[in-house]
Measured scan of single mutants.
Amino acid sequence: MGFKLLSKLLVYLTASIMAIASPLAFSVDSSGEYPTVSEIPVGEVRLYQIADGVWSHIATQSFDGAVYPSNGLIVRDGDELLLIDTAWGAKNTAALLAEIEKQIGLPVTRAVSTHFHDDRVGGVDVLRAAGVATYASPSTRRLAEVEGNEIPTHSLEGLSSSGDAVRFGPVELFYPGAAHSTDNLIVYVPSASVLYGGCAIYELSRTSAGNVADADLAEWPTSIERIQQHYPEAQFVIPGHGLPGGLDLLKHTTNVVKAHTNRSVVE
């Protein structure tokens, strides 16, 4: 069995187990497998329904001669939608809004960016022009300005110390501490036991640490421990890039980060 097929099978099995364990909360999309990078042309966006009122959005972007996937989250909030992270750029984010209108038909009224990198804030200006209120932590807003990236308009308070959590509509926002970046936030959907790890969490097929220019490698494993301790009931975990899975993604990420750190020390 090929690795790609095995990865998709694991996603399907995880979703099936969740649907059985929580039949009222989960209505997993039966329309197909989780979209992969090879299936999404740059400039297009796919939506994948995880649970009743919960979707991931998947886009792709060219970077350094390669094409990478990027995940975000959409959560229903009454007759409105909360968006977590842009679709990595203005063109993708405009396509995301169009796809949401086509498939869901509810307005996106608020959006949260989970850290300051372009795959999370690139497209904020498109959201703002569409009347979406954009939010991020003060740290993310400051770092985005320093980096020359787009800056969300509103500040999220109460997320300055490791372990801080605040309720934001249908989700809980959690600051686990520094990891992929010093400002990275985690998003949890309690009604569906869905954990969105953003770039602080890796997919299972990833074996290298990737972009760690703004990471705190020493603190990252401790931050992941905080996530595990705060959300032990999480059933569906979405990484910032690639295929979702279960809580095993947290341990896998820790292993990859520690291996990278150990290699760096040896070198």
Rank of each mutant, 00 (worst) to 15 (best):
A111W: 04
A259H: 05
P232W: 13
Y34V: 10
D118V: 08
D119H: 01
L250Q: 00
P107M: 13
R46E: 07
P107W: 05
S137W: 05
E225L: 15
A15C: 09
S31F: 05
S27D: 08
L10C: 11
C199L: 00
L106I: 14
I74G: 02
T222K: 09
L81D: 00
L185Q: 01
V37L: 08
S137I: 11
G240I: 04
G242M: 03
Y231R: 01
E33H: 07
N184Q: 05
V237Q: 00
V121A: 03
V54W: 02
I224D: 01
I201F: 15
S161Q: 15
D214Y: 13
A209V: 11
A215S: 12
V212G: 12
Q49Y: 07
G246S: 11
V11Y: 10
T109E: 11
G53F: 12
S160T: 13
L250P: 03
H154T: 14
E101F: 10
G123F: 01
P41M: 09
V237G: 01
T222F: 07
D64T: 15
G89K: 04
R110F: 04
G210F: 04
Y196G: 01
I17F: 05
A90M: 14
V54R: 02
S22M: 08
T134H: 04
H57C: 02
E225R: 12
I238H: 02
E101R: 13
V28M: 09
L73Q: 01
G43S: 10
E33P: 08
D118L: 07
T182Q: 13
C199R: 01
E145F: 12
D183N: 04
L96M: 14
V194D: 01
E233R: 13
H252D: 01
G2D: 15
A66T: 10
D52K: 08
T222W: 14
I74R: 02
Y196K: 00
E99V: 15
L10N: 07
V132Y: 00
P244G: 06
L127T: 01
K8Y: 14
A130W: 12
I74Q: 01
Q49P: 14
H57W: 01
V124L: 13
I58M: 15
V237E: 00
N255S: 09
H57A: 02
K8E: 09
T86D: 01
L249K: 01
F26V: 07
V75K: 01
A133Q: 12
N255D: 05
T222A: 14
I40Y: 05
D79I: 12
G72M: 01
P176A: 06
H115V: 00
D118T: 14
G242S: 03
G197W: 01
P107N: 15
W88A: 02
T93F: 01
E147Q: 08
L83N: 01
E147M: 06
P41R: 11
E33R: 08
A234F: 04
A19Y: 11
R226G: 05
W88K: 00
K251N: 07
H252Y: 04
H180A: 01
V194F: 02
I186C: 01
K102H: 06
V189S: 04
S264T: 07
E147I: 15
A19S: 13
L185E: 01
Y202E: 09
E157L: 13
S38N: 05
F236R: 07
G198M: 04
L24N: 08
G210Q: 11
V28Q: 09
S30G: 11
